[in-house]
């Protein structure tokens, strides 16, 4: 029997020239684009593993060693993973880069193939977001990182504000895969005036690791 070398396909293609790519877990990954510029950047993270957890109590389902966000809206970062608490009995795990796979037998529902994941990074990130959503992503008094669930470009999304400090802005976005092309089109159009450029996973990982160290 021949080995199955088919590749997964991201729901979106960013309008840039990939400079360095690799294949990880059957997903083609762009590590770096040529001419990424000074930011802001748009990064396709659809290849990153995402797992939906629904349980009561929730703590019983979170893999050992990872922290549990205590209240809806809270987010925890550890070991290149991110956990968002969406409700009383629901959370979502994100695994970035080369983070260790979640344990075999772990009872979450993998939603990686069913959803789109993007990151908007760098200066003007929230100016771009403001053009596409009425959500108050920069509400003062809320600790970061923070999860918001609501419409972005009129699509129900999960939005994670990872950092809002000047020059280190990071916004993660996830929605149903079918909205991918239109979502990227809306973000690209909104970011045109700020010179939004596609960027590879490496740029996201550098910023995420810095954020994790400071978390």
């Amino acid at each position: 029997m021949k080995p199955d070398n088919r590749l997964r396909q991201s729901p979106v293609q960013l309008d840039g020239r990939p400079h360095r790519t690799l294949v990880r877990d059957h997903w083609p990954v762009v590590c770096e684009y040529a001419d990424e510029g000074d930011g802001p950047w748009l990064v396709d993270l659809s290849h990153c593993q995402r797992i939906d957890i629904q349980a009561r109590p929730l703590a019983a389902m979170i893999p050992e060693g990872l922290p549990e966000p205590e209240a809806p809206g809270e987010v925890r970062i550890q070991d290149q993973s991110l956990i968002t608490r969406m409700g009383k009995a629901q959370a979502c795990l994100w695994r970035f880069g080369q983070a260790a796979a979640f344990p075999v037998g772990f009872n979450g529902t993998e939603i990686t193939e069913a959803t789109l994941a993007l990151a908007i990074l760098g200066r003007h990130t929230f100016a771009i977001a403001e053009k596409l959503s009425s959500l108050d992503l920069q509400a003062p008094g809320r600790s970061l990182p923070r999860l918001y669930q609501g419409p972005f470009a009129q699509v129900p999304c999960q939005l994670v504000v990872l950092d809002a400090a000047a020059g280190r802005e990071m916004l993660l976005l996830s929605c149903s895969r079918g909205y991918g092309r239109d979502m990227v089109g809306a973000i690209t159009n909104a970011g045109a005036e700020f010179n939004l450029r596609p960027a590879g996973e490496d740029r996201f990982m550098r910023m995420f690791e810095n954020r994790e160290k400071g978390a």
Binding site: P72, M86, G87, Q149, G150, P151, P156
Partner: peptide, 8 residues
Amino acid sequence: YHRAGCGI
């Protein structure tokens, strides 16, 4: 029903 948000 919060259809565009958390879904509760």
